[in-house]
Write a protein that binds this DNA or RNA. Structure first.
Lengths: 94, 94
DNA sequence: ATAAACTGGTTTATATTATAAACCAAAATA
DNA sequence: TATTTTGGTTTATAATATAAACCAGTTTAT
């Protein structure tokens, strides 16, 4: 009846991040921070979790002299997101 | 862009309970326990939270000699569930 | 009749999570 | 050169989810 929801994705901030990343090639930390309306600290932690799960790729570089963190979704991440959405439908389509 | 998701509903077990209750007049504790595959303790706690929020009504009676807990969704609960589902769509419709 | 197991839960403790606050290095600005 | 801003990370705290322990009463087996 109710499939389990991937706990990693069943989190408002991480889900918002994945939702953004799934429709772009890559996104910068500051872009994600602004779009999700999150604090930098919280975002940093959640990106780590998604990254450790292999759902996203996080690349650190520099733009000019400033640090630049760029994120992109992985194949595994896309699959996980799609599965999550499918499972979720069992809960919300009465 | 992303509306906040009601934290009370953004919980696998509570969401499953609401999902069940929205399509029936009322449901017994044991029915909810079985359908959601939850432990009694966890279910008990989560029903309390939904009840305190005014999202469900919990009635305690007896069937024969055994205690019987019966739950039903309230108007407020229906509204909250519908709002939650609508907000959620922003996250999952890329 | 009495012990053992089961029903229908609640309460309490613990692990996990989310979030905020504090911090840091470097760069830009006043 | 002091102050603020940028772009974050780390650490501490609050909130949540979950499991484990418990409880009152009932049924079943001995």
């Amino acid at each position: 009846m109710f499939n389990d929801l991937d706990p990693l994705l069943h989190s408002q901030l991480r889900l918002a991040v994945m939702s953004l990343l799934i429709s772009v090639e890559s996104a910068e930390f500051t872009f994600l921070k602004e779009k999700t309306n999150s604090t930098a600290g919280n975002l940093s932690v959640q990106l780590d979790k998604l990254s450790e799960a292999g759902y996203i790729r996080v690349e650190k570089s520099f733009r000019g002299k400033k640090p630049l963190t760029t994120c992109s979704i992985t194949k595994k991440g896309i699959k996980a997101f799609e599965d999550y959405v499918n499972n979720l439908k069992q809960y919300i389509n009465k």
